[in-house]
Design a protein around this nucleic acid. Sequence first.
DNA 1: ATTTTTTAATTCACTAGTGAAATATGAATC
DNA 2: GATTCATATTTCACTAGTGAATTAAAAAAT
Lengths: 165, 165
Amino acid sequence: MMDEGIGRVSQIIPQMPALEARLCRLMLMLGDDIEEELEFKLKPHKLNHSEFLTLMILYSRPDGSSTPGELCEYATQGATNMTRIANALVKRGLITRGASEEDRRRVLIRITPAGRRFVQKMLPPMFPRVATMFAGFSDTDKRHLDRLLRKLAGNLDQLSESRQP
Amino acid sequence: MMDEGIGRVSQIIPQMPALEARLCRLMLMLGDDIEEELEFKLKPHKLNHSEFLTLMILYSRPDGSSTPGELCEYATQGATNMTRIANALVKRGLITRGASEEDRRRVLIRITPAGRRFVQKMLPPMFPRVATMFAGFSDTDKRHLDRLLRKLAGNLDQLSESRQP
DNA sequence: ATTTTTTAATTCACTAGTGAAATATGAATC
DNA sequence: GATTCATATTTCACTAGTGAATTAAAAAAT
């Protein structure tokens, strides 16, 4: 369906990089599909993607703590949104928010023991469906995919730098 | 950075499919990156992604017309949002909206000559950066990537059917 | 030592997208 | 042929995320 669409457009505008455009479109569709699958798994826990990601970042830190600014960077979220995310997670007792000693502009965010238990409980049931996503992929397939995606990521990185350096 | 995070989590929870989780995360990041790049190219034309996609679907149809319901399906948008998208495009004179003759529940959406000209003018300047995204990709790389992404899409399709059939 | 500049987080007003209900027409059933 | 059921679109109330302005503290400049 998408293939036919791109085909017809590239017949009218032949200088279009049709193959590349198709790959772009595929990546966008897959990104949406994976996001949808993820949100489906998160819904029972009343978490959305960015809250989950933020919580996982904290969980994966050796000391379980970070600052809003750092979390923004790693979760690629605006500071505005991080405030809301932190509000939501604090309300549920999964993280705490306190003032930093050294730099009083900073806020210190820390995952709570309850937050750790929550992650450890919710994660395992997600595994089977993640594995299913890559059913029929050989180890070589996965390695190839990883390599190609990282190459693409590198190119996109350059493009993003060329936007506002 | 993400690799270390997943590494630490999979040390605590060893039954996690770490490789697959990493590929998921990569796909999500790349989807966001490509979306960002696309929105950047669309901004000067005051279009967002879903408006652009809707317009392109109409452009690529042989007769240049469709209905809201059909557009929802192809653009994977809710009906609610399609109403807003159509409103925006009508306002700019890129599409028209009229009642269907056969089925008066239906609305007929059609790209205007101005809409066609608009697409033909805005598309070519986007090509260089699309090509750059795949710089360093051999033809084999692109074929492989296409194959792997389609396989992944197939698996995700199955998963989505298992959600609410 | 005071002023200026920079950095960090938050609040506010907005855009984009979703789910549930409303409206209206067509199709099916009795 | 009236009633029930299904389909198509829109409206309304909500969630998620963004940009601009605000507040406050630290760092740099004078």
